[in-house]
């Protein structure tokens, strides 16, 4: 069974523990600017929205990579950046229409959510279950997928 991150903004309190956990898990530092998940604040509506890669089927980043440095982890379904192959050209950062793969100037490479090899630190750190790691077949994910599909460049055969 493959699992996906499910984000319920209504439950997010804006504590940003997910950002801290992500940054520490992946970069070894507590630095929200190094996090692959970001919490956006909408002051007027008093809302918080955690946001990260949906591991979309279109895989814009992967298709755009000129050196095959982004690959699907067959166990988790995540599109992962292989740092040893990434040259830091940044084409994926303009190709991803969701803005969820970004350049990390300190490593000279790009970074994105890789689902922490199937045990995402953000979901574990979230105290309110705004971020959960659920069965990919759960219907609540459809809305996110529908949005992703809207951006496709050509209908798919299957």
């Amino acid at each position: 069974m493959q699992r996906s991150l499910n984000i319920d903004p209504g439950k997010c309190t804006g504590c940003r523990q997910c950002e801290m956990a992500c940054s520490y898990e992946n970069e070894g530092v507590f630095n929200p600017s190094k996090s692959r998940i970001k919490v956006f604040t909408f002051d007027a509506e008093a809302r918080f929205v955690p946001y990260t890669c949906t591991q979309c089927a279109e895989a814009w980043c992967m298709q755009a990579c000129p050196v095959d440095a982004i690959k699907v982890n067959l166990a988790t379904g995540a599109k992962e950046v292989h740092a040893d192959l990434c040259v830091g050209c940044k084409v994926c950062t303009i190709a991803c229409p969701f803005g969820t793969i970004n350049y990390n100037a300190s490593s000279g490479k790009v970074m994105k959510c890789d689902l922490c090899e199937g045990d995402p630190a953000c979901a574990k750190a979230c105290p309110t279950q705004a971020i959960t790691f659920v069965d990919s077949n759960w219907t609540g994910l459809d809305k996110m997928r529908a949005w992703a599909a809207k951006t496709d460049t050509g209908a798919r055969a299957n």
Binding site: K38, C96, F98, G99, N102, T151
Partner: peptide, 10 residues
């Protein structure tokens, strides 16, 4: 500006 620039495409 390098963070989230892809949303311009989106």
């Amino acid at each position: 500006v390098t963070q989230h620039v892809g949303v311009m495409r989106g």
